[in-house]
Each structure stands twice: as C-alpha cells, then as structure tokens.
Design a protein around this nucleic acid. Structure first.
Lengths: 192, 192
DNA sequence: TAAATAAAAATGAACGTTCATTCATTTTAT
DNA sequence: ATAAAATGAATGAACGTTCATTTTTATTTA
C-alpha cells in the first residue's frame, strides 16, 4: 500500500484552504495567516511549499484546472461519434461543476479576474485539446456549426458556470431534469 | 445650458479610475492611493464622496449596471413580437459588451467574485425585468423553451461575456459576422 | 466694483493596522 | 546524533482612513 507523503498532505491542505478562503472572501481578503490557520499550519510553513502568495494561487489554479479537465474526459474516447462524444464531455463538465462546487467556483473566479498569471492561465488551458479536436471533426462532418472553438465554448461550457453560481447563491436549484434541459440548449446552439 | 456640477465630475472620475484599476490589477491590487492618483484627486477627497473602499466599489458596480441595463432596452418596446424583441435586446447587450469594454469587463469581474455586497448585487439586478417579462411571454406563446429565466440567461447573455473576455485578451477577434453567428446560437438554444 | 468674510471643498502628511515574508529556534524524523 | 521540517514572533512595507490645514468658491459689506 503506497502512502501519500506527509508533505503532499500539507500542500493539498494549503491549496484547499486557499480555494475556500478565496471563494468566500475574495483574494483581497484571504491573508496568508488565515490560509495557514485553515490548513492547520504555521504561516512560515507556506513558504516551504510555495514561493509566495501569487505562486500559491497560481498553483492552486493549475491543480484545479487539471482535475477539471481530467474529469471532463472521463470515459470519453476519441473515436466516439461527434454528438455522443460531445454529450459525454458536456455531462462530465456539468457533473464536475455541480458536485465539486468549491473547485468550480474558484475556477470561475480565476477565469474572470486578473488574479492569475497569464502563464498559469495558458498552462491551465492546455488540456482541453481533445474537445477542440472533437469540435473540429464535428465541423468537417457538417454536424456542428463552422464557428471558432471560443464561440462553441461560450455557448456550451461557459453557461454551466453561470448556473453553478446561481445554484451556489441559493437562487436557482438544479435537478437532473434541469441539467438535461441545459444539455439540449447547449447542443441546439452549436448543432447545424 | 445646464452644466454638470464639479463634484459630480470628481465622483465620475473616481468611479472611472476604480473600474480601470480593478480591471487591470484586480481589487486586491487597486489601492485607494492609486485610484486617487488616476482620478487626479487627493486620497482624502475620495472620502468626501464615498464612505470607504467597499462603498466606492459597490457604487461603481451599481452605476455601471444601470448604464448597462438602460443600454439593453434602447429602442425596445414591450409590444414587440417575442423574437424581434429578444433580438433587439440581445444585440443591444452585445453592442454594449463589445464597445464599452471597460464597463463590461468590470461587471464580469464583479459578477463572478465576492467583491460586491449582496445588497448592491440585488440592486443591480432589478432593471433586467423587461427581459424576464419578454421571456415569460415567449413561453406562454410557445416560442421559447419553458425553462427558468436563469437558464435562458445562461445560454444567451452570459456567453457574450466570455466572448468579450477573449476579445479583450486579444485571443479572439469579433467582427459583425461573428456577432450575427453568436446571435443565431443564442436564439437556437432557447427557441422551441 | 472691490475688498472682506464666511462657507465649502480639497488636500496630503500622519496614524494605526494589517499584511506578506523572514529566520532564529524548536520539533520531528532518520 | 544528524538532518529535515515546521514554527511563530519579529520586521518592514503598504494599506485604508483621518483630520488639521490650505485652497477655492460663494456671500456680504463698503
């Protein structure tokens, strides 16, 4: 049985604490001392794992983004038919955003503010490649509208973040029925 | 000729400076001293117009949101046919987000972070009422999918913010053709 | 009209606080 | 006994905010 090294545990705890505090209070009100306390660690310890606050937030972003994209392509295979593949990926993303609320909220905040370095942002985008490829195939097969991937993303994936935000604020509950409705809307917006 | 009072000019300059700095550096890196400098005003002067930093940001948000919703309903009339009315409003919103980039970016940041008081957030939402009403009518007339307004918003208006963000980062240019394509996608996602 | 006075607006140095970060010391693991 | 990991009090810089003073504007007086 391979155990997780203790140092990794502290790192994870710090990243989790960062996500929670930034979600609840915002970057500007998430001091290192509070992050340390929430992770049950001394402030000084943070600097054994991260260069500084910016590095901590950058790494948190990259880590969460990686988990997100891995989740997105679970059980997806490149030879799926276009619509089947898209549905799989979209549903995965929806599941992630609605179950892993903390992580998803954090991403939504990072993606809409100058909180994160441009470099980390690019790093985080890398792993979405298979979805772009699928869309490309969908376009050549004349199943999907011939528009830029940004457009396709804007009308299919980005809306989920809004629904998650509303759900989180207790404004709009999301049942499985709603998720299915949402998928239909996403697909209708990009299908030819 | 009615002139604008000088005090209003300072208030406006401060709000504009806040928007710019928060856009470029984020709330956490937009100190009052910098805001004052950018508005050509002494730090102390800010406190003649605003209670504190939070109040300044809240008021900036409310002001911009008001301008946004006013713009959204320009030349819209409640007796328009559903699709015509929706197209009018959607195109207005798109125009706002793509022309008034600073204001729109600021809103996108405020709407996705805990930067703004819940109260100001609600205040800012008030004026979207006519769009909700239009959607309601569209549903009873069986033109629009019978789903919650949050869902409709998520798939029609929210995506524009993403496209604007990409455009702003120089990642994806948006011509009028793209805007028209985007409208089609928005409409396809909600039409019955 | 011009000078004198009062009121309002604006200033910016100073204050107290908070923050990110460091490092001499202690604790834990080898 | 040695090395590695963790601590947390100390540090100095930066921040939001205040307020005694100055500058500007408005009003009154001569």
């Amino acid at each position: 049985m391979s155990t997780i090294p203790k140092s990794q545990l502290k790192r994870e705890a710090l990243i989790k604490a960062t996500i929670n505090l930034v979600n609840n209070d915002g970057f500007h009100a998430a001091p290192m001392s509070k992050i340390a306390k929430m992770a049950n660690v001394s402030p000084g310890t943070i600097y054994l794992y991260f260069e500084n606050k910016q590095d901590l937030v950058n790494q948190a972003y990259i880590e969460v983004k990686k988990a997100f994209t891995q989740f997105a392509f679970k059980d997806y295979e490149e030879n799926f038919a276009v619509e089947k593949g898209f549905k799989k990926i979209w549903m995965n993303i929806a599941k992630f955003k609605l179950k892993e609320v903390d992580e998803a909220l954090f991403l939504s905040q990072c993606d809409n503010t100058p909180m994160i370095d441009e470099l980390s942002r690019q790093e985080g985008l890398k792993h979405l490649h298979p979805l772009i490829e699928l869309w490309k195939r969908g376009i050549t097969e004349e199943i999907i509208k011939p528009v830029s991937p940004y457009m396709l993303y804007a009308f299919t994936v980005y809306p989920i973040a809004f629904l998650m935000n509303m759900q989180q604020r207790g404004i709009n509950k999301l049942t499985q029925t709603h998720v299915n409705e949402a998928y239909e809307m996403a697909w209708n917006s990009i299908k030819l």
